[in-house]
């Protein structure tokens, strides 16, 4: 804390010169620390005026905007400004600004949107923005997918790759129980529920590998695998493993895998069964945005 000495005593370095006020023309505060004194300069003019202006501004603000709480209400301000009224105005403005395009998107069939270059480029731009916010965390920023979340660039579709199919998937989700029209169909848990034992699972997994021409273990009994497959799997995945989009059973005869192509991954799938879950978007996104998303996904490269 400050330490007071009645008068600066001349030290060897002579920094505390009693004639300092005379030199600078400004008085001192009278404080002195180890012989160092403090000049008493006034605050700069510009600073002081800015400060006063802020006070005046604040008082004006009280009158113009909602400010002071009262007993049962609050002062509403001369402007009558309300954040919730303002957002209505802002959103209405935004809607009006886009309405030209969004009403066209809403009124046009998906196929016709894709034929119209102007609509297509708007839909792709809107779709790509909505994809980044809502879909990328699962399907990846480039829609390349992750384990369990399908790649949307390729032409291998679990639930159908026509633009209409994609729109249905987006609207109602996949196995999303809160939506009564959601896409549904789950694979039984062959291992966990004891339908097949471990050896049988390994045998049928070898057969599944062979369907897409992947290498199988030397001693694999493909004939036994085929029998097991016909009895347990063909109903959903098809006799030749071509899959079934009605129930979301993937094609097992191509080289595109949702959960991985090694034997362990396939055995795990057969053991656990189940199916991936995607939320329904019809409660979160408006009709035009969902259509734009469908067009965007459809035109990524693999659309049918």
């Amino acid at each position: 804390m400050e330490q007071k000495t009645s008068a600066p005593s001349g030290h060897a370095n002579g920094s505390a010169d009693p004639s300092a006020p005379a030199q600078s023309g400004v008085g001192t505060t009278g404080h002195s620390w180890d012989g160092i004194e403090e000049l008493n300069n006034p605050l700069p003019r510009w600073w002081l005026w800015t400060f006063y202006a802020c006070i005046v501004w604040a008082v004006g603000y009280w009158f113009v905007y909602p400010a002071i709480p009262l007993v049962s209400s609050y002062t509403k301000g001369f402007l009558g400004w309300q954040s919730r009224a303002q957002i209505e105005v802002d959103m209405a403005e935004l809607k009006a600004m886009r309405s030209g395009m969004t009403t066209k998107i809403e009124a046009t069939e998906l196929a016709d949107i894709e034929k119209n270059p102007e609509l297509l480029s708007f839909a792709r731009a809107q779709g790509s923005a909505a994809f980044a916010v809502n879909c990328a965390p699962c399907h990846g920023a480039g829609a390349q997918g992750f384990k369990g979340y399908p790649n949307l660039n390729d032409d291998d579709w679990i639930w159908g790759g026509k633009a209409e199919d994609i729109l249905t998937t987006i609207k109602h989700g996949v196995r999303w129980e809160q939506d009564s029209n959601t896409r549904s169909g789950v694979m039984p848990s062959f291992g966990r529920d004891g339908i097949l034992n471990r050896k049988e699972i390994a045998t049928v997994a070898d057969y599944v590998l062979s369907l897409s021409g992947l290498a199988v273990d030397k001693g694999a009994d493909l004939a036994a695998g085929k029998t097991l497959y016909a009895a347990n799997c063909a109903a959903c995945h098809g006799d030749a493993g071509a899959g079934n989009q009605e129930m979301g059973a993937p094609n097992l005869s191509d080289k595109v895998w949702l959960y991985g192509s090694d034997k362990a991954a396939i055995m795990e799938r057969i053991t656990l069964g189940g199916g991936g879950v995607m939320p329904a978007w019809s409660n979160r996104l408006d009709a035009a945005t969902m259509k734009s998303l469908a067009v965007y996904v459809h035109t990524l490269g693999g659309g049918k």
Partner: peptide
């Protein structure tokens, strides 16, 4: 709420980089 699946949250909590690199 309802934006992602339970499975996604499970993956994401275990290791966010597994779904959002």
């Amino acid at each position: 709420g309802g934006k992602y699946s339970d499975d996604w949250h499970r993956d994401h909590l275990r290791n966010p980089r597994s779904v959002v690199p």
